[in-house]
């Protein structure tokens, strides 16, 4: 399979990339590792007129701690680089998810910025970013803005990112000692995409109540979402099992040849319970 023809430019700097994207007026697309975009282009589901290769912009790579305690992951950081970064190891849900995203070959090329921009409804990383309440920092020739992750994913392959904007970094809150987190997923074996993937963070226990709970689900709805009904049930004192029953509340559950609606919804509730149990176990 061969992509439709396109013009190729290799960006020499971030400003150069932004100028190229702006000049493209919506028909230019940035490519980093290409692990999401190239398969779409080969199927001709995406036909950009111009590809702006940002793969060599070193300033967008790497993980660093910010002055306010948050952790910044450069948009061009690959999954493999994230796996090797000790700063990220203390995020239990990242330690769970990263080794199982794609496969080695995909993790060697695929970037967190690319995956976020791609907004695949079954991608693992969006659920993790949602659970963590991350911030998406984007830049264009018009300037920089920080988009709260809560409103970022808007549909299947649709996000708040404008065509001329580039994701420069993802900012995660600094880890709290009183919270535990975990990621659990059932994957479709050939593609590796989650039938249901769940990121959970829980903690701040006082007496017999949890003071903090954050649960996000991918693979199930039109886009990854926060399972707010689960969260409020937990904060209200419900058991993990009882709360997990609300995993798909208000969501149109996806159905395909790998998992029909009923099965997928069931898998989601099981994974929510397991992710909550694993997150709570990390607190001990």
């Amino acid at each position: 399979m061969i992509p439709a023809a396109f013009d190729y430019v290799r960006a020499t700097s971030l400003d150069d990339a932004l100028a190229r994207l702006a000049a493209g007026g919506g028909s230019a697309k940035a490519i980093a590792g290409g692990q999401s975009l190239l398969p779409l282009m080969k199927l001709r589901l995406a036909r950009p007129e111009t590809l702006v290769d940002i793969g060599r912009l070193a300033e967008l790579k790497g993980v660093r701690r910010l002055g306010d305690g948050r952790v910044s992951i450069g948009g061009l950081t690959t999954y493999d680089e994230m796996l090797r970064d000790m700063t990220l190891h203390r995020y239990g849900l990242l330690a769970d998810a990263l080794p199982n995203i794609g496969d080695v070959q995909v993790r060697n090329r695929g970037t967190i910025g690319g995956a976020t921009a791609h907004a695949d409804p079954a991608s693992d990383m969006p659920a993790i970013l949602l659970a963590l309440d991350a911030e998406v920092v984007v830049r264009s020739v018009r300037g920089e803005r920080a988009i709260p992750i809560a409103g970022f994913f808007q549909g299947a392959f649709a996000s708040a990112l404008e065509p001329d904007e580039l994701i420069t970094e993802l900012r995660l809150p600094g880890g709290r000692e009183d919270l535990g987190s975990a990621y659990r997923a059932i994957e479709q074996p050939a593609s590796g995409y989650s039938i249901a993937g769940v990121a959970a963070i829980i903690g701040a226990r006082s007496g017999d109540r949890w003071g903090f709970c954050s649960v996000a689900i991918t693979g199930v709805g039109e886009h990854p979402y926060r399972a707010t009904a689960v969260e409020s049930a937990i904060l209200g004192g419900a058991s993990f099992e009882a709360a997990a029953a609300h995993a798909c509340d208000g969501v149109t559950v996806a159905s395909d040849i790998h998992a029909d609606r009923e099965y997928r919804a069931h898998v989601a509730t099981v994974q929510v319970r397991r992710a909550l149990e694993a997150a709570a176990a990390r607190l001990a």
Binding site: G34, V106, N108
Partner: peptide, 23 residues
């Protein structure tokens, strides 16, 4: 040819990649 099977794997600067999904 859809970056699933790995038959096209080569190393690029020492790291394995699926060469059907690299320009």
């Amino acid at each position: 040819d859809t970056s699933q099977c790995g038959a096209c794997t080569v190393t690029l600067d020492g790291k394995s990649v699926k060469s059907c999904t690299v320009l």
